[in-house]
Simulated scan of single mutants.
Amino acid sequence: MSTTVNTNNTTNNAAATATGSSSADLQNQFLKLLVAQLQNQDPTNPMDNAQLTTQLAQISTLSGIENLNTTLGSISGQLTTSQSLQASTLVGHGVMIDGSGILVGADSSTTPFGVSLDNASTTTTVTIKDSTGAVVRTVDLGAQSAGVHSFSWDGTNDAGTAVAEGAYTFTMAATSASGANVVSTPLQYAAVYGVNTNATGGTELNLGLAGNITLDKVRQII
């Protein structure tokens, strides 16, 4: 009975002096408890070897996970830095993003527009409208392969007259050889003015009035 009491007291003292949650702290706690238990264990009821092995394996696993997390954190930081450097090369260039806007300048110059097709089409038609919703130009783009395509508009209406300066919108319609509709996503042009870091540490492109977007939203670089 005396031996048991001394064992409990020694174990409690060892546990009280070792606190923490990291693998190193747990290892220190375990070793102190192990030494205390070996010094004071009951000879008639020795420590279970299987339990000791399990505890050692758990500590080793925790240490490995901590090292893995540290390594992954370092890799993530390097990838973020690399992504920012790559994104900076886009400053001054144009990109195609999801959207249906076209801008017409005073000299009838226009921003590019585009489409992303899920499948190949045999007929592809773009309809351009002014700010009131009136159709000003309909263009047959013919057959197009699946993927991203960009086009330019000469800034004239169906009568061949230059349209007024301002903002226009467009819609796309595409069909396959069987006559079925092909899923199409309209794309608009935006200029890249800078590179930002968002609240989560990710890299974003500053597109001015078009807002900020992440790199995965860029469909094409002009």
Results as ranks from 00 to 15, higher is better:
residue 1 M to Y: 12
residue 1 M to I: 13
residue 4 T to R: 13
residue 7 T to E: 13
residue 8 N to F: 15
residue 8 N to Q: 13
residue 9 N to V: 13
residue 10 T to N: 08
residue 10 T to S: 09
residue 12 N to L: 15
residue 14 A to H: 01
residue 14 A to V: 06
residue 15 A to K: 09
residue 16 A to D: 06
residue 17 T to K: 08
residue 17 T to P: 00
residue 22 S to Q: 08
residue 23 S to I: 01
residue 23 S to N: 03
residue 23 S to R: 01
residue 24 A to S: 03
residue 28 N to M: 01
residue 30 F to E: 03
residue 33 L to C: 03
residue 34 L to Y: 01
residue 35 V to Y: 02
residue 39 Q to S: 04
residue 39 Q to T: 01
residue 39 Q to Y: 04
residue 40 N to H: 02
residue 41 Q to N: 09
residue 43 P to T: 12
residue 45 N to K: 11
residue 47 M to S: 12
residue 47 M to T: 09
residue 48 D to H: 05
residue 51 Q to L: 02
residue 56 L to C: 00
residue 57 A to R: 12
residue 64 G to A: 00
residue 64 G to D: 04
residue 64 G to Y: 00
residue 65 I to N: 09
residue 66 E to C: 01
residue 66 E to S: 02
residue 67 N to A: 03
residue 68 L to T: 14
residue 69 N to Q: 07
residue 70 T to I: 03
residue 72 L to G: 01
residue 73 G to N: 07
residue 73 G to W: 10
residue 75 I to V: 12
residue 76 S to C: 03
residue 77 G to D: 05
residue 78 Q to K: 12
residue 79 L to F: 14
residue 79 L to I: 12
residue 80 T to D: 01
residue 82 S to E: 11
residue 87 A to Y: 03
residue 87 A to L: 00
residue 88 S to K: 04
residue 89 T to Y: 08
residue 89 T to P: 07
residue 90 L to D: 11
residue 92 G to Y: 04
residue 93 H to E: 08
residue 94 G to H: 11
residue 95 V to P: 12
residue 96 M to P: 04
residue 97 I to V: 15
residue 98 D to S: 15
residue 101 G to D: 14
residue 103 L to S: 13
residue 104 V to M: 11
residue 106 A to G: 08
residue 110 T to P: 00
residue 111 T to L: 12
residue 111 T to Y: 13
residue 114 G to A: 04
residue 115 V to D: 10
residue 116 S to Y: 15
residue 116 S to P: 10
residue 117 L to Y: 13
residue 118 D to V: 15
residue 123 T to A: 11
residue 124 T to S: 14
residue 125 T to W: 10
residue 126 V to A: 14
residue 127 T to P: 10
residue 128 I to M: 10
residue 130 D to C: 09
residue 131 S to L: 05
residue 132 T to H: 12
residue 132 T to P: 09
residue 132 T to S: 15
residue 133 G to R: 04
residue 135 V to P: 07
residue 135 V to Y: 15
residue 140 D to E: 15
residue 141 L to H: 06
residue 141 L to G: 06
residue 144 Q to A: 10
residue 145 S to C: 03
residue 147 G to I: 09
residue 149 H to C: 14
residue 150 S to F: 15
residue 152 S to W: 10
residue 152 S to C: 13
residue 153 W to N: 13
residue 153 W to V: 14
residue 154 D to G: 13
residue 154 D to P: 07
residue 155 G to R: 06
residue 155 G to F: 03
residue 155 G to N: 13
residue 159 A to D: 15
residue 160 G to L: 02
residue 162 A to C: 06
residue 166 G to S: 14
residue 167 A to C: 08
residue 167 A to L: 10
residue 168 Y to W: 08
residue 169 T to A: 12
residue 169 T to Y: 02
residue 170 F to V: 03
residue 171 T to A: 11
residue 171 T to I: 11
residue 175 T to Q: 14
residue 182 V to A: 11
residue 182 V to D: 07
residue 187 L to C: 10
residue 187 L to Q: 04
residue 189 Y to F: 12
residue 189 Y to C: 12
residue 193 Y to P: 01
residue 194 G to A: 00
residue 196 N to T: 07
residue 197 T to S: 06
residue 199 A to F: 10
residue 199 A to Y: 07
residue 207 L to C: 02
residue 208 G to T: 00
residue 209 L to K: 04
residue 210 A to P: 00
residue 210 A to Q: 03
residue 211 G to N: 02
residue 215 L to I: 06
residue 218 V to P: 15
residue 218 V to K: 04
residue 219 R to K: 13
residue 219 R to T: 15
residue 222 I to K: 08
